[in-house]
């Protein structure tokens, strides 16, 4: 870990200005990912801006009937919020499927969105990695890639985004609220928040320099059954091999609408419009579910060890859709 300086602002404006003043800075909240990365010198910020004193730890109702989740709301607290439990089950279940109790107590909403990949090669500075050191190459392609991505990859990077929470937020059409150093605010749909690696895997989001996440907003609860299904190698404390977040609305045996997002498949929480389209206004049943799976994996590309994710996610999706339409 490199020596760093440290400050703890108490207003959003001060935090954003601090970041703008010192570009080689990082925000730290729960620190559940950043501290590990600093110990390994994968991250080497010269300055840490501790945002834990900012007034961003509330979950509030929005006028339109949705929720506004402060950037500092801890994963445990968000999962326990009665409104989340009642109306956003997919989010509550995703949160509780992540990490361990201790980590969820520390991890924050914005920090969870911004956590780095768990690609093994990213974590060791003696291994080439385009995300960590642009242009050095990707060790995972041709290496041990069992846990890595099959969709949205590039020749430069095949990482997955490790979050469960973000997958559920993706399916809920969440938006990210930010404040810049000059006080300007903007709202970014989560669907436009993350970037794919392409030739610049070091760039993971569309946040601008000096911009701080202040909240995540959820629209009013959508109609339909909400399911989060995480498939993993052990029963707890393991990242998803694949995960499926689904909100499926049915009537008279027909799928009226389906929203589907996936974890463990891609460098970002993966929303599949084509899979959703394959279900819309279709009779709920195995043929439609298989069609959605086929649409989802169009263009999917395994790297060897992770080839199994392609059939696995189709099977998991079918299971989730079967469950979601049991009473259709």
């Amino acid at each position: 870990m490199k020596t760093f300086t440290y400050e703890r602002p108490t207003t959003v404006a001060a935090a954003a200005q601090a970041l703008a003043a010192k570009p080689d800075s990082k925000f730290i909240a729960g620190g559940t990912n950043l501290l590990d990365l600093m110990k390994l010198e994968v991250e080497t910020p010269a300055h840490l801006i501790d945002v834990n004193k900012l007034p961003l730890d509330a979950v509030e109702d929005t006028p339109d009937g949705g929720l506004r989740i402060g950037a500092l709301v801890r994963n445990s607290d968000l999962a326990a919020d009665p409104r989340v439990r009642k109306s956003y089950g997919v989010l509550g279940r995703a949160l509780l499927a992540g990490a361990s109790g201790q980590l969820r107590n520390k991890a924050t909403t914005a920090g969870n969105l911004l956590q780095r990949t768990r690609c093994y090669y990213f974590y060791d500075v003696t291994q080439p990695c385009n995300k960590r050191e642009p242009g050095s190459g990707c060790s995972a392609i041709g290496g041990f890639n069992r846990v890595l991505a099959v969709l949205g990859t590039s020749d430069h990077c095949i990482t997955t985004h490790p979050s469960d929470m973000a997958v559920a937020m993706q399916v809920l059409d969440a938006k990210v609220e930010t404040t810049a150093a000059d006080g300007a605010t903007r709202t970014i749909p989560l669907a436009e928040f993350y970037r794919l690696p392409e030739a610049t895997p070091q760039l993971e989001t569309n946040l601008k320099t000096g911009e701080i996440i202040t909240a995540v907003t959820l629209p009013p609860p959508p109609p339909g059954v909400q399911i989060y299904r995480k498939v993993r190698d052990r029963a707890s404390y393991a990242f998803a091999l694949v995960s499926v977040a689904a909100i499926v609305d049915t009537a008279d045996g027909q799928v009226r609408s389906a929203r589907l997002a996936f974890g463990g498949l891609a460098p970002k929480p993966w929303r599949s419009a084509s899979a959703e389209a394959a279900l819309t206004n279709q009779k709920a049943g195995a043929p439609a579910f298989a069609g959605a799976g086929e649409a989802l994996v169009q263009g999917a590309k395994g790297s060897g060890h992770n080839d199994f994710k392609i059939p696995l996610v189709q099977r998991t999706l079918s299971a989730v859709l079967t469950q979601a339409t049991l009473n259709a």
């Binding site: 768990r118 093994y120 041990f144 069992r146 029963a235 404390y237």
Partner: peptide, 25 residues
């Protein structure tokens, strides 16, 4: 414990990724 057969590197040398049975297992 996974070794990268190209360079002898232990890929999952930590307890998050070297999975042992946890309580839930």
């Amino acid at each position: 414990l996974v070794m990268d057969k190209r360079d002898g590197w232990l890929a999952n040398a930590n307890l998050a990724e070297y999975h042992v049975a946890v309580h839930a297992d």
